[in-house]
């Protein structure tokens, strides 16, 4: 049997592809284009650091101490005569890796915990939620310092520290979103067609809570870059003489009156990149919201 086609059926407007939506969201706002350019440049610079940097970031020169910007050194030199531009270029690698690895790891772990807590509720929820509350009670930086003080510095320790610090935020957002999504009739519909619980979570819960998680990730990338700088500034993060934006500022602070250029250069870059990721987060949020993107 074939029912007659619904007479009220209107021809549907062509469905905008995900790509078209993304393109529209990006190009509708100049700020987003700016953010995207900054982020792409940041990634390119980090990836191609050895090709871009004019000098070895570790090479000291007693003759070129505390130089202001010049043709030879576009952003000047620090108190050991190292080229600041080269150090900033190489420092971007640490910032980039820290900036991405911790938030992405935290997003995966936090989403997993939050979805489990929100979907199953009960005792599981109580245990996970209390641990989240406990961790949220500490400011990220304080938590990071605490863990770093116990474990010591070093790359993976700092990654672990920041991941632990970021996870509760993701878990809380994932749990709250899951609680809302779980009430939706389409979840009951998935149960009614006999879908297994893990598949319900993967297919019907996770895609529908993804938007706030992705936005949160881009925002935490900005925070992670900032926190890596703070930790390096405090001497816990990237260890000298390796450059990172944070310890360039720290070294520069000791020598502020010798040359302000390390602080100006690294400070400007941190500000620029954090701003860009925040703007990008706003754009991603708008692009992912199915209701707003009609």
């Amino acid at each position: 049997m074939t029912a007659s086609i619904d007479p009220a059926l209107q021809p549907l407007a062509a469905q905008p592809s995900a790509f078209a939506t993304l393109r529209r969201v990006i190009f509708d706002r100049p700020a987003t284009i700016f953010a995207l350019v900054v982020v792409i440049l940041f990634i390119l610079v980090a990836a191609l650091a050895p090709l871009i940097a004019p000098y070895d970031p570790l090479a000291q020169s007693i003759l070129d101490v505390n130089k202001p910007p010049s043709a030879a050194h576009p952003i000047g030199t620090d108190q050991f005569g190292r080229d600041i531009l080269s150090r900033l270029v190489f420092g971007s690698r640490n910032s980039l890796i820290f900036g991405f690895v911790s938030p992405v790891l935290a997003a995966i772990i936090g989403t997993f915990l939050g979805v489990i807590a929100g979907y199953f509720g009960g005792l599981v929820d109580r245990i996970i939620s209390r641990v989240i509350d406990l961790l949220l009670a500490f400011p990220e930086l304080l938590l990071a310092i605490l863990i770093a003080a116990v474990l010591g510095g070093g790359f993976w320790n700092v990654v672990a520290v920041l991941t632990v610090a970021f996870t509760p935020g993701f878990a809380r957002v994932a749990r709250a979103s899951t609680l809302a999504v779980k009430q939706e009739p389409y979840i009951e519909a998935a149960v009614a067609v006999g879908l297994r619980t893990p598949m319900i979570i993967l297919r019907h819960v996770v895609p529908n809570i993804a938007a706030p998680i992705v936005v949160l990730t881009t925002l935490w990338i900005a925070s992670a870059i900032r926190l890596e700088a703070s930790l390096s500034f405090l001497g816990i993060g990237t260890q000298p003489p390796n450059p990172s934006w944070g310890n360039i500022i720290r070294d520069g602070l000791n020598n502020l009156f010798g040359s302000p250029w390390p602080i100006i250069g690294a400070g400007a870059l941190i500000t620029l990149v954090v701003l860009a990721f925040n703007l990008l987060g706003d754009a991603v949020r708008d692009a992912l919201d199915p209701e707003a993107s009609r």
């Binding site: 389409y186 009951e188 519909a189 009614a192 006999g194 019907h204 895609p207 529908n208 199915p290």
Partner: peptide, 23 residues
């Protein structure tokens, strides 16, 4: 019970909420 769901189904009241929005 999951296997039994092949024999018994449901049509929901809310045509907007009962379809997963991203599928």
């Amino acid at each position: 019970m999951r296997m039994m769901r092949q024999r018994m189904q449901i049509i929901f009241q809310d045509p907007f909420g009962s379809l997963s929005p991203r599928r």
